[in-house]
Amino acid sequence: MEQRSADNSILRRSRYTAVFLGLLIALAALVVWNINTGSVHIGVGEIARILFTGKGDDTAVGIVWKLRLPRIAAAAVLGGGLALSGFLMQTFFGNPIAGPFVLGISSGSKLFVALTMIVALRFVSFISSWMMVVAAFVGALIAMGFVLLAAKAIRQMSMLLVAGIMISYICSAITEFLIAFARDSDIVNLHTWAQGSFSGTKWGEVRIFTFIVLGCFLLVFCLSKPIGAFQMGEAYAQSMGVNVRRFRVVLILLSSLIAGCVTAYAGPISFVGIAVPHLVKLLLKTAKPIVVIPASFLGGAVFCLFCDYVARTAFAPVELSISTVTALFGAPVVIVMLIRRHGGRA
């Protein structure tokens, strides 16, 4: 038996390696592809020269450094963050279709960011990146609070999601209402943002969200052991030595912080949080956090880079909202997952 299990572990390991290699190659390819495409055509040779020497045609340098690269960074880091946040919420609720978007966490963040922007622009005519992140985090936590209240009252998995979707609708309605009545011209942008988009990202913002999201990623990765215990159910996790009460708080704070941060910069983005961890688990054939966490992060980056590419190019020069594209590719994954799960149980 030792022998067979040893063979099995070699098989597992080579599978993990293959998946990670595949994801890294896809990531690299999508980065190159995304730099290369856009409304202004720039040759590959020129891009290479701009990237490695910083010299070249001024407009081209501007497009690559100020538009395309920060946008790529946003799609990669925030996409990874979304997948991570989704994975944490699935672990917390023990529910494979939990995620920041369906539970209304993203919408809660959206509402608070819109509110902060309107108030800030009216009274102090100034808004910093950090204010947005804090507002988004607070909004995420408040929405999470409502979801937790609902979860306490109703034990059924599907009803929890219904509660989340309702919270999401309420928050979106209030946000739309605020945007419609805010006259400030600066808020014109708010509408695009409220639909979800990676466009218009600046390097200063990239620094902040990369710091937050990567920091959270490292923390979550270091927590993969208790997360693994938590996946077994709370009672077993406790018997394995996890302080469940404290750990629940950590999970809520981390997942809300990541979801809030993503929303602050890119608006609410649907389905990445559910579809990516699920696909990653299918590929890896395991749910072990120590491999699923980094793979989900990479997978989220790949998925969002791909979706952003489609959003930019499918109907160029018109840009689609990123959520439209993620829903198009993510929702079928979720539907298939639901059917397979129910099929398995029946």
Binding site: G94, P96, Q231, M232, G233, A235, Y236, S239, K281, K285, T286, A287
Partner: peptide, 14 residues
Amino acid sequence: LAVVLTERIKGELL
């Protein structure tokens, strides 16, 4: 102390 509980073990692909 270790336990064997009545509740089902959660977790997938184990």
